[in-house]
Design a protein around this nucleic acid. Structure first.
Length: 280
DNA sequence: AGCTACTCCTGGTAGC
DNA sequence: TGCTACCAGGAGTAGC
């Protein structure tokens, strides 16, 4: 499922086909993808606008729009489970599972989404729509010290906390499991009981996992995530925990266990990731 | 504050 | 073969 590395890859790969393009028309095949806006309002907001920038914040692809050189709102695209963005050239038949399409002065942008959880929504400006999000894990403002202090005040288990986009932006189920595995921290360890040493390890592993996954253009292991060019990512070959239930731990050979934490499948090594007594 | 349960969705697959 | 039941899950929300 698309998390920070997959969304980063998507934003990077669609940008060349969108930059400077003007939106000529819209096609909406699933109204709820617009996140509550009517078809007519959406059309009025975007038709005639020009794309000035494509970037990523948390798990959102952000498409900045302009009119006559001035900011004219943003499109926020959240891929959720099965969303994809694809830029196609001149003539196309509409791809399967297309929920929203933008006809451009050159080419088309399609939002495809099998399960319809994703969103393709217009906002007058990005700040208020993105203000609920925590720090970017690869930004300068996110430091070891900031991370340790933030963990210190929380009584929640570490995994649900890392999945909370208001605490830290961009991580999802896969990269949380991988980061906790590499840092040797049990997913149910209470955040306040994560020592300074372990917090430093987790900080490093979160950044390492994300950077490596970006280089590999994300993870593809089922029929869903593909880059906008249709290629699978390759980080799934480096999974050590996620989806490896029953397989040997790469460090100690013990079988990887699967439990459910906050309704999410959670994978860890019961020997390497031990729950401290305080957190039991 | 932070937990659980529920909702939204559908393709794939296991079981019969 | 063809059917049903169940599974995956990000984020928002309700209720405790």
């Amino acid at each position: 499922m698309p998390e920070l590395p997959e969304v980063e890859t998507t934003a990077r790969l669609i940008e060349p086909g969108l930059l400077g393009r003007t939106i000529r028309g819209v096609q909406v095949d699933w109204l709820r993808s617009l996140g509550g806006m009517s078809r007519g309002k959406f059309e009025g907001a975007v038709v005639g606008a020009k794309v000035s920038r494509v970037w990523r914040r948390a798990k959102y692809v952000v498409i900045d729009l302009q009119r006559r050189g001035k900011p004219a709102g943003v499109l926020l695209v959240h891929l959720r489970m099965t969303g994809r963005l694809v830029v196609k050239g001149k003539w196309v038949e509409v791809p399967a599972y297309c929920r929203v399409g933008l006809q451009l002065d050159r080419g088309n942008l399609f939002f495809l989404d099998v399960r319809k959880f994703g969103r393709f929504s217009f906002h007058p400006e990005s700040e208020s729509a993105l203000q609920h999000l925590g720090p970017e894990p690869l930004s300068d403002e996110f430091t070891q010290e900031v991370f340790f202090e933030a963990l210190h005040g929380r009584r929640r288990a570490i995994k649900p906390l890392l999945l909370d986009q208001g605490f830290l932006a961009g991580l999802g189920n896969i990269y949380v499991d991988e980061s906790l595995f590499r840092a040797r921290i049990h997913p149910l360890e209470l955040a306040r009981h994560v020592s300074r040493v372990k917090a430093a390890r987790l900080f490093e592993q979160i950044q390492t996992v994300l950077r490596e996954a970006i280089v590999r253009e994300g993870s593809s292991f089922d029929a869903f995530y593909r880059t906008p060019e249709g290629q699978p990512g390759s980080y799934q070959h480096l999974f050590q925990a996620y989806g490896r239930t029953g397989k040997p731990c790469t460090r100690c050979d013990r079988a990887i266990r699967r439990i459910v934490v906050g309704q999410r499948g959670t994978h860890f090594c019961p020997r390497c990731q031990v729950l401290s007594k305080k957190s039991r």
